[in-house]
Amino acid sequence: MRSIWRTLDRGLARDIALVCLADAVVGVSFGAITVSSGLPLWLPMLLSLVVFAGAAQFMFVGLVASGGNPIAAVVAGLLVNARHLPFGFAVGDVLGDRWARRIAGTHLMIDETVAFALAQRDAERRRAAYWACGIGLFVCWNIGVVLGAFGGTVVSDTDAFGLDAAFPAVLLALVLPSLKDQATRRAALAGVVIALATAPFLPAGLPVLLALAGVLVSFAGGQAEPAEKEKEAAS
């Protein structure tokens, strides 16, 4: 574990710390919103420890608090979290071989840890970024949720601070360098179009999964690439 902290340079550590801080504030709002909507004090804390996935937790609490069927709330949360399966394919190598570590690392897999890992060039840094971000977020998120659940309504509206814009920006900044690659860019663009076109009609989580069909576009594009290059060379 010590090698992780050695590999982290100050810049990367600072970036991760910033995301952890923002996440803690959202955690405070999650705790506060859950308790103020009439659900028990322990529920936001249990969810944050056991599920550890912000979007699915908000979805679950929203549905249960508005009188929804708990089974429907579980299904909705699982649908939102299904994207972790392809995530695991992409970054599974960072978890290592030992069982204890693999189980802990598995639980820490969320959007930000995956994005931070993918943004690193070599394997050593990928591993360091994944673990530092995962552990940092797990600690900060859970502390935030406890504070929010007990402290109540101080930070219930994180939109006022623009935090709802900060999180997409975090992922965008981390993903942007990968988009320099043409095949990746084509797949991502197609995926974005698919997700946005289907989002108004489908339950949350599904549009993002359907975006994977965009990867096929990059495949199809791969065949055409040599011809395109010739064209570019000719012009």
Binding site: A115, L171, A211
Partner: peptide, 12 residues
């Protein structure tokens, strides 16, 4: 890797 980036882009 392309799949993961595509998912993250759609999420953004």
């Amino acid at each position: 890797a392309i799949s993961a980036v595509t998912l993250l882009a759609a999420l953004v």
